[in-house]
Nucleic acid binder design. Structure first.
Lengths: 416, 416
DNA sequence: CTGTTAGCGCTTTCAA
DNA sequence: TTGAAAGCGCTAACAG
């Protein structure tokens, strides 16, 4: 068993080295204040070093710390014959620790399987290393990608993440906000595309860094990711125009959401820019769900002078349109050209693969995290928050085609 | 401003009443040890009471606690002119608090906008009120439903939840396990359908309650949700048989996963039960993704004696099959009957709507949470964990049909 | 460079 | 019934 120790230490050392930082046990060329096997509370961002040589049973057999709850820093100190302060320093990579002691401490940590108690660390340091992430609907395929992206980068920076999906219920949101405050999150990313801002007052008044998508004025500690809807939507409209479409409908999201309005605005502007008529009847309000898309298409088909192409405010809506056109016996893109928005992963697997405007979920997640991290690390709060921009762009697939000659193709219900 | 107070108290009181519990300030008919505006650390499960009358600005204007970090129990105590112990008792609904004091405390809490610090609570109580939830792939539509379900019930019991999506990377999993231990989770639900069990040793040795899907022997503190695959798959097979299909293929998940093996086993058993031949060539190994489904169908179409129906180990695979049959110019269900597994929400929106075997994600989430909660509340650890069972069942939609007469229908690549 | 010590915010004895 | 005080596990002065 003793034979394991050098090996274990070596692994930790290497892990530290890999991070390109210095540890007392092993001075590296570059001096870097941030070092340590566990994430560091005070300094820059870290990647945790995972270790754990001694197996559970081994540990039990060592007898000392038999089952009485998780071990604390004291057990480690005792075993390494140092003070708890030294253990703490070692863990946090404070560079003043003697190599010899550091070695002993790491060895002890490995042997007893010690994992520091985050609650205690948070309490004393005042930093929880937790970010909150509020999404509207995790069951909507758009959001899991963001959650995943956010988690990836958070983990990479040793941040924990409290995810919550609040739907459209303000009470759920209020509860979520409370939970986050109680857990003392250091920042919250709000990816809901327009929930009532007043609900975040508790967060704001506590000066907790926040990042929104598409909100307007940036207050101190509040960042904003501005989506450049126009860029992609204009591409989409021009693509349709190039295919000779002139009667283009737009199915929006709920117009109570700022983002939905912004997308519709972008559509209208893009149409007008190239002199295409915007028929108000072609502006349908949907709700960003498949059902909404289905209903919207039905409305569209009831129109006298039907559009030949439809642009949707999100992909789920477009899926609904596809689904409904199947019901109606219509074929996409032959009978109707269709473009979505978001480019969720499923879009490319649709039948036919959906042409859509991409709004990168990974980038949103990355930007949101960066915004929060920057704000947390900033000494003086920025005077008015930071604004980030994300460009959208068209992704061509198979759901659009040249406009058909006969625009009178019937609406034949598919026989059941 | 003073006028607000009675109102605020009333709201809290009502919230307490709604919970049907007693508080010192307001003895309710039923005596219930668990009571309190914030969740209770010691007793049963709670629903938090959300309050917060005094707005941020009001609070600021009250001048006292100007911005210097979050307020602590001391400020509340001072303002209510009681000791911090009394504040603590009030919050936790200890029944010995005088109504008069309780009122004062709640008022102070409201006025200063006090939110207890969970880290401190966790530290002293040894209970974090956090459960971990490990899923394999949150971007797979099957899992978000589970995450949502789990969150719903967790919030309802005042538990926080640490979700993590680990993919198939053992290192990510190891890291996740470490994170959870550091945050001192009280239990972990593992919904990965068969990741290497050894990776959870650190959890096990710490006697942290765990719940798996489909693992074998139940150890102490380890529960298991057993999925009754046979029930639903047998229905599916018999449904196909009733439609005169005899050549039925099965696209499994990666056979390294126990659950994938179990599903395939159920398929084979169901076939044999009714005397249908199981052609080994009809047993294709997929990987539970769309791409896998697409590849699998290609393999199937290369077979000399093609099957007329395909059963898939999950819905994503079935989606892939649909997608590929579109490429191949085949039509479902005319040319091929198709059945999925899981019944993810998207299944009903497919073209055509997918007949599939339902494995309720909500129920899994509920069962998993219940299992964890039961284990946490249990005094003596159960001798060998608890086993729960979830039944599956067929959901009929439009992706199956009577077998076609001409089984020689060609494989005509769809013209691009 | 290392150890001692004073808390972080809260719960929970133990007295009063 | 209430308050004083002792920690929970950890970090960060402050001495030595």
């Amino acid at each position: 068993m003793a034979g394991d120790a050098p090996d274990a230490i070596e692994r930790i050392r290497q892990a530290l080295l890999r991070r390109g930082s210095a540890s007392a046990a092993n001075p590296a060329p570059m001096i870097d204040k941030s070092a340590g096997g566990f994430h560091n509370l005070n300094h820059g961002s870290e990647v945790k070093v995972s270790s754990g040589k001694a197996s559970a049973t081994e540990r039990q057999e060592q007898g000392r710390f038999s089952g009485e709850g998780p071990l604390s820093i004291h057990e480690v100190a005792q075993r390494a014959k140092v003070s708890i302060a030294t253990v703490s320093r070692t863990i946090n990579g404070v560079p003043t620790v003697t190599p010899e002691l550091s070695r002993r401490v790491w060895k002890a940590i490995e042997e007893v399987g010690y994992y520091p108690n985050t609650h205690a660390r948070s309490l004393v340091s005042g930093r929880s290393r937790i970010f909150g992430l509020i999404v509207s609907e995790i069951t909507n395929p758009f959001f899991p990608e963001i959650v995943q992206g956010f988690e990836d980068v958070a983990v990479h920076h040793s941040y924990e993440i409290l995810t919550t999906s609040v739907g459209h219920d303000p009470r759920r949101l209020a509860l979520a906000v409370r939970r986050m405050i109680e857990r003392r999150v250091e920042g919250v990313a709000i990816v809901t595309f327009g929930l009532e801002e007043a609900l975040f007052d508790e967060l704001k008044s506590r000066k907790i860094p926040l990042v929104f998508i598409d909100v307007g004025p940036a207050l101190p500690r509040i960042s904003n990711i501005k989506i450049d809807y126009l860029y992609g939507i204009r591409q989409a409209v021009q693509h349709l125009a190039a295919l000779r479409h002139t009667r283009i409908a737009f199915i929006s999201g709920p117009l109570s959401l700022k983002s939905a309005v912004a997308r519709q605005r972008a559509f209208v502007d893009s149409m007008e820019e190239i002199g295409l008529p915007v028929n108000p009847k072609y502006l349908i309000e949907g709700n960003h769900t498949m059902e909404g898309g289905m209903a919207a298409l039905r409305k569209i088909l009831d129109l006298r002078n039907r559009p030949t192409a439809v642009l949707c405010s999100n992909d789920m809506t477009a899926f609904g349109v596809m689904r409904q056109s199947y019901e109606e016996g219509m074929q996409i893109p032959r009978d109707l050209s269709l473009i979505g928005f978001d480019d969720i992963r499923l879009a490319q697997f649709m039948i036919p693969p959906l042409t859509t405007v991409k709004m990168s979920q990974t980038e949103i997640a990355q930007l949101a995290f960066d915004a929060l991290l920057a704000e947390v690390q900033r000494e003086a709060p920025s005077p008015s928050g930071t604004e980030y921009t994300l460009r959208t762009s068209l992704v061509l697939r198979d759901s659009t085609a040249l406009v058909a000659n006969s625009s009178t193709r019937g609406r034949t219900k598919r026989p059941k």
